[in-house]
Simulated scan of single mutants.
Amino acid sequence: MVGRGTADDRVTGEYPGAGELPFDWSAVGPADVASGGRARFRGTRVRAGNAMARTRASLLDAAVRLIAERGTRRTSMTDIAQAAGIAKGTLYNHFRNKDEVFAALVEAEILLIADECRGLALEDALAVAAIRLDTHPALRRVADDDPAALAALVGADAGAAGWRAARSGAADVLAASGRDPRGAELVVRWLASHVAAPDGDDAEAGARLLAAVLPLRALATV
């Protein structure tokens, strides 16, 4: 896809972030799941410990807001830099093109949702993740603007960085719940189904069912 910026802004042949799976592009907590409330939109929240990390976080925040407002096709590198209040040259110190911006955004969001799900009961963690995918404005904008691109994200190579991060986070949540971490692949594929076909009405029921069939760690090691 090609953005509307300069030639330097153009995507390099694949959908921005190809190979990455967008997971945490919303803000839903356990209370939202219990109440059935709608997610509120927010950008990427990164714990930045130094100036470079803060700049990177600002750029990713800007990118996710712009995607929600106008989609990926009409979001250029210039737009991202301006929205973040950062010089375009500084943006290129962090990312060479939109592919890298969107891939980094995806990975940051995956790590965030995994962190937020730790400590929750497994059923709640699954429901929170699914509802976020169902309701996030940026992800839904991509679905509306370019369904083929969304399908490419869901069907990306399983060895891509985004998928690896997702499986790792899911495995951690499963292990903390006393479940077999090898069930992470099933969890990630279930969440991916919410990317491709959002169904908020199914999130909690699906989470309960999935949590019930995932094997316990003790049983899996016998």
Rank of each mutant, 00 (worst) to 15 (best):
D61Q: 11
L60N: 00
N93R: 15
S58F: 02
K98Q: 08
I110H: 03
R54N: 09
I80N: 02
A39G: 12
E100L: 08
G71Y: 06
L59P: 01
M77G: 09
V101R: 08
G49W: 08
S58D: 10
I86Q: 05
D115G: 12
L91A: 08
F95M: 02
H94W: 09
A108Y: 04
L60V: 00
F95Q: 02
A63W: 02
T55W: 04
A87C: 00
G37R: 15
M77H: 03
V106N: 13
A114E: 02
L112D: 15
I113S: 05
R38W: 12
R38E: 13
A108C: 08
L60F: 04
R65E: 04
A84I: 04
L112E: 15
G36V: 05
F41L: 10
V106R: 12
I80F: 08
K88L: 13
R74P: 00
R42N: 12
A108T: 02
V64A: 02
G49S: 11
L59E: 02
Y92H: 14
T72C: 09
R56Y: 04
R74Q: 11
S58R: 13
G89T: 11
R74G: 06
E116C: 06
G43L: 01
A114D: 05
G36A: 04
V64E: 03
T44A: 13
A34Q: 10
L112S: 15
R38C: 10
T78K: 11
L111T: 11
R96Q: 13
